[in-house]
Amino acid sequence: MSVIFDPARWRPAAFLPERDTRDSALVFVVAVLCFMACLTALGVIAADRAARGWSDQLSGEMTVIVRPKANETPDSAAARAAETLAGVPGVAEARALEREKAEALIAPWLGDVADLADLPVPRLVAVTLSREAPATGEALERALRTRGLDAVVDDHTTWLADIQRGAAIARWLGIGVFTLISAAAAAVVAFATRAGLAARREVVELLHLTGAEDAFIARLFQARFARMAASAGLIGAIAAAALGAGLRLAGGGQGLTPVLPVAWSDLLAVLPCPLAAALVAAVAARLTAANLIRELS
Rank of each mutant, 00 (worst) to 15 (best):
residue 195 A to C: 07
residue 184 A to S: 15
residue 147 R to F: 04
residue 138 E to D: 13
residue 185 A to P: 03
residue 112 D to Q: 12
residue 134 P to I: 01
residue 158 T to Y: 08
residue 191 F to M: 13
residue 113 V to F: 04
residue 116 L to E: 06
residue 135 A to W: 00
residue 165 R to D: 09
residue 113 V to Y: 02
residue 120 P to H: 09
residue 193 T to Y: 12
residue 166 G to I: 08
residue 180 L to V: 15
residue 119 L to C: 11
residue 159 W to V: 02
residue 162 D to C: 00
residue 125 V to A: 07
residue 106 I to R: 06
residue 198 A to L: 15
residue 124 L to N: 07
residue 133 A to V: 05
residue 131 R to E: 14
residue 114 A to C: 02
residue 122 P to E: 10
residue 173 L to S: 13
residue 198 A to E: 12
residue 182 S to D: 03
residue 143 A to M: 06
residue 105 L to C: 04
residue 110 L to V: 08
residue 169 I to F: 14
residue 110 L to W: 07
residue 112 D to L: 10
residue 186 A to D: 11
residue 158 T to D: 15
residue 115 D to K: 03
residue 161 A to N: 06
residue 129 L to T: 10
residue 152 V to W: 13
residue 121 V to W: 04
residue 142 R to F: 02
residue 119 L to G: 06
residue 145 R to C: 03
residue 158 T to E: 15
residue 104 A to L: 07
residue 113 V to T: 11
residue 144 L to S: 02
residue 108 P to M: 01
residue 151 A to V: 12
residue 163 I to Q: 08
residue 177 V to S: 02
residue 139 A to C: 03
residue 147 R to W: 02
residue 140 L to W: 01
residue 122 P to Y: 05
residue 148 G to T: 04
residue 136 T to K: 02
residue 172 W to C: 02
residue 173 L to N: 12
residue 111 G to W: 05
residue 119 L to V: 09
residue 188 V to T: 12
residue 186 A to F: 09
residue 173 L to F: 12
residue 106 I to P: 05
residue 124 L to Q: 03
residue 110 L to G: 07
residue 120 P to Q: 10
residue 150 D to R: 12
residue 131 R to Q: 13
residue 186 A to K: 08
residue 185 A to N: 06
residue 130 S to W: 00
residue 151 A to G: 08
residue 187 A to P: 03
residue 175 I to C: 10
residue 117 A to D: 15
residue 144 L to G: 04
residue 193 T to F: 12
residue 118 D to A: 15
residue 148 G to I: 04
residue 185 A to S: 14
residue 196 G to S: 12
residue 117 A to F: 07
residue 164 Q to H: 08
